[in-house]
């Protein structure tokens, strides 16, 4: 039996005594005045990001380099095609996985190789044995070098995490400034009807669990490539 009422009851009982506000005991080096209302705008404290597209792109590139994400700005679809084909060749892809979308359709056509589609039910083993998962996204975040994907924008839950190489196709206007902007965008896009999964992907999968030494591709993709059109 769910203990909903007993737990809520205990909570209400416990909260009858007021707790001291936070930060009252902080030492001098850590003390800041309490905010009058609970803060909602975090921008002044989070890592700074420039306003212009160029500043955002530069920061995204810098973060990508640190994260070992391969980030490339491409001028047009022709360049995207060249680069994609070169990448497929270099990596020796034989089978890719993707979902329906304006950019993904273009990429699929450009690559012309066997494909697993995740728009409707698919075979997990087929997806697992694909060489790359190609998706679109909801946004890129300059502040952190992150890609925002959802089940709706990126072909479900597994496509962006199961194949060993994740390729993201994004548009310039999707490159947002910071995390507050990213969450605002999600809210705008989905409102009250959110996809069942949304994810902020920041670099290829990684671990440091063995002697704190960085290894990429722990369980998710070993490589993350982002083309920004």
């Amino acid at each position: 039996m769910s203990e909903r009422e007993p737990i809520l009851g205990r909570i209400r009982e416990a909260l009858r005594a007021a707790a001291p506000k936070p930060g009252l005991l902080s030492g001098p080096g850590q003390r800041v005045p309490a905010h009058e209302k609970r803060p909602t705008d975090f921008r002044p404290w989070l890592p700074a990001v420039g306003e212009s597209f160029d500043e955002r792109a530069a920061l995204f590139a810098k973060n990508s380099a640190e994260l070992k994400t391969d980030f490339q700005l491409v001028a047009d679809r022709a360049e995207l095609q060249t680069k994609l084909v070169a990448l497929a060749h270099a990596e020796g892809w034989k089978k890719i996985a993707t979902h329906a979308g304006d950019l993904t359709n273009f990429a699929f056509a450009a690559l012309g190789m066997p494909v697993v589609r995740t728009d409707s039910r698919y075979d997990v083993n087929e997806l697992e044995s694909s060489d790359a998962g190609i998706t679109e996204c909801d946004a890129l975040v300059a502040q952190t070098g992150s890609v925002v994907v959802t089940t709706r924008s990126a072909g479900g839950r597994a496509l962006s995490v199961l194949p060993p190489h994740h390729v993201v196709l994004a548009r310039r206007d999707q490159l947002l400034r910071d995390l507050p902007a990213a969450f605002a965008a999600l809210k705008r896009q989905y409102g009250s009807d959110y996809p069942s999964m949304m994810c902020l992907i920041t670099g290829p999968s990684r671990t440091g669990d063995i002697e704190r030494i960085l290894v990429l591709g722990a369980h998710g993709p070993k490589k993350l490539t982002i083309f920004c059109l």
């Binding site: 890592p47 502040q143 952190t144 995490v161 959110y194 069942s196 994810c199 920041t202 670099g203």
Partner: peptide, 12 residues
């Protein structure tokens, strides 16, 4: 700066 995967799940 942020962890690699921050996943928000709102249902089945």
């Amino acid at each position: 700066a942020v962890s690699c995967y921050n996943t928000f799940i709102g249902g089945p």
